[in-house]
Simulated scan of single mutants.
Amino acid sequence: MTRREDRPQAAELMPSETPVRFVAEDGTRVDRHAGYAEPALDRLRTAYRLMVRGRRFDAQATALTKQGRLAVYPSSAGQEACQIASALTLRPDDWLFPTYRDSVALVSRGLEPGEVLTLLRGDAHCGYDPAAARVAPQCTPLATQTLHATGLAHALARQGKDSVVLALIGDGATSEGDFHEALNFAAVFDAPVVFFVQNNGYAISVPLEKQSAAPALAYKGVGYGVRSEQVDGNDAVAVLAVLDAAVEHARRGGGPMLVEAHTYRMDAHTNADDATRYRDAEEVERWRAADPVRRLETYLTGREALSAKDIEEFRAEAEEFAVTVRAAMNAEPVLDPLSMFDHVYAEPTRQLVAQRALVAAELEAADRETQEA
């Protein structure tokens, strides 16, 4: 733990007065980046390629809900800059703690689409090995994963490792008690964790102004002694620059950091939501003008780091990726009802063993009836 006299002063914790920004809505360069280093052009090209693929993945997953192949899908269309930066800023040995809306970040980190979408199809709570992927299960309850992320970060530090944990949350999660407990613990114990708030303006249908009266959600870290920053969440250059700095801050022993990205989800909360009931078309169109994919494309084209041929190739690659997503979801899952008893406890309780035996007996009886029929 950092000694009290060594803790940063209030001014050192404060976020920038306005969101950090490198690129305006029209793709031109702006100088409002508070000294953050601009990522290299080749890295920005990679970010653009993954953003194009991520948007196509998102559209494909949304279509799969209409075909009955997914039970639900929370779109992140419009938040690609945040999703891709989250994946690119981490090392393979770092950990990512996602929410239910962060599927694009997961496939961009290298997970198979079928494994990522397992939760949303309803096959299992998690379709991948969290320990192998260094990605925690996607979290549906708001903010509960912030405590898990903080605890793991503290454990990694106690083990002498320099790995960092990145916890993804939405604006609604900052109203939850778990979020505040996680900030407090992380600050007291200097846990190497970055809390990344994707503020898309709504907690389902509740607008930000009915959630918080703070000047920005980034200021919520200051009271706990957590360094904080806010960034234009639709400016991929700025998001990557700020997250790079935040992760490095945590990795070198500077303690936790809170980053708020001002962004927008262009689609409804999920396919089961009617967003027209709480926001108007004019608002959505204003944000479409700040489209993160188009903004980065225009910027890189102006820097002569992206050609028309590159754009065509990246879009073709995204279409090929969508084919693999469809193939994975069109394959019928092989389900084992007894698997619901696995991984509940390290040592199953007597009650769990009895319940498993009861279900096994019922399945055997059903099989016999089927064979006899």
Rank of each mutant, 00 (worst) to 15 (best):
E332I: 00
D123N: 11
T270Q: 04
R251T: 14
E285D: 15
F189I: 03
T140N: 13
R252W: 11
R356P: 07
L90K: 04
Q79L: 08
F189T: 12
P19N: 08
P39W: 08
H154G: 12
Y128E: 01
V359I: 13
L111E: 06
L50A: 11
A173L: 07
A261F: 02
A155D: 10
R29A: 12
A153H: 07
D190I: 06
L111H: 01
Q138T: 04
A308W: 04
G201W: 03
H249I: 05
G110V: 01
R134V: 02
V104A: 06
P207Q: 00
F179Q: 07
F185M: 09
A331I: 03
G54D: 12
V247P: 13
A105C: 04
A289G: 09
G177I: 06
L142D: 01
N271S: 14
D280Y: 14
L352M: 15
D190Y: 13
Q211C: 12
Y224N: 09
P348Y: 14
V197W: 02
L335S: 10
D162Y: 04
R303G: 13
F189E: 14
A85Y: 00
E248G: 09
P337T: 11
A85M: 08
G302N: 02
A155P: 09
T118P: 10
A327K: 06
G110P: 03
V116W: 00
R29G: 06
Y299D: 00
V334R: 11
A143L: 08
D171M: 12
V197A: 07
V259P: 00
F22A: 04
L106I: 00
T28Q: 04
A365G: 05
P337G: 15
L258N: 05
E181G: 10
L41R: 08
H33M: 05
E176I: 03
K309S: 14
Q371L: 09
E209F: 09
H262E: 11
T301A: 06
A322K: 07
F22N: 03
Q198S: 14
A173Q: 01
V325N: 03
A357H: 14
A354H: 15
F97K: 03
T324G: 06
A281Q: 14
R315N: 09
N234K: 01
L208W: 02
R45W: 07
A365N: 10
P215C: 01
V323L: 11
N199Q: 05
A328L: 01
L306D: 12
R227C: 12
E304A: 11
V193T: 03
S175Q: 10
Q351L: 15
Y345L: 15
A216E: 09
V194T: 05
P130Q: 06
P137I: 00
V334F: 08
A213L: 05
A40L: 06
A59N: 12
P337W: 03
C139W: 01
D280L: 13
E285G: 15
